[in-house]
């Protein structure tokens, strides 16, 4: 069982991710915007973070940059969850240090597989 932080401004998507991963026994923390996501990551030290890109207050990339710059959070793997699906956009996310990049829409199965892959290593 792991603690996973889900940051997305869309409540239905937060719930979808929470339900899917919660069903597999993970503890889910939710953040509604980039600012909250950064604060919670530092405070709660989750095992994995799922980050939307386009969020209010702070974009997912800003959050990612700050997480990687802070040594207390730099080691937490981050999966980007984004509607930006062109190969150049995916490449950008990976270059910035995301461990994985999942394009929306995604299937719950894909999500579970990617999350497990990261948590197992």
């Amino acid at each position: 069982m792991s603690r996973i932080l889900v940051a997305d401004d869309e409540p239905h998507i937060r719930k979808l991710v929470s339900f899917t991963l919660g069903n597999r026994g993970h503890e889910i923390l939710q953040a509604e915007d980039g600012g909250q996501a950064l604060d919670m990551a530092k405070l709660e030290q989750p095992d994995l973070i799922l980050l939307d890109v386009m969020m209010p207050v702070m974009t997912g990339y800003d959050v990612l940059d700050r997480l990687k710059a802070d040594e207390t959070t730099a080691g937490i793997p981050v999966i980007m969850l984004s509607a930006k699906s062109q190969s150049t956009e995916v490449q950008e996310g990976l270059n910035r240090g995301a461990a994985q990049y999942i394009c929306k829409p995604f299937t719950p199965k894909d999500l579970v597989r990617q999350v497990n892959e990261l948590l197992d290593t």
Binding site: M54, K104, P105, T107
Partner: peptide, 17 residues
């Protein structure tokens, strides 16, 4: 197309569940 992806994520995701 980006805006369409967000609601589609929910539709597809919940149906798959």
């Amino acid at each position: 197309s980006h805006e369409l992806r967000t609601p589609l994520t929910s539709i597809k995701g919940y149906i798959d569940l």
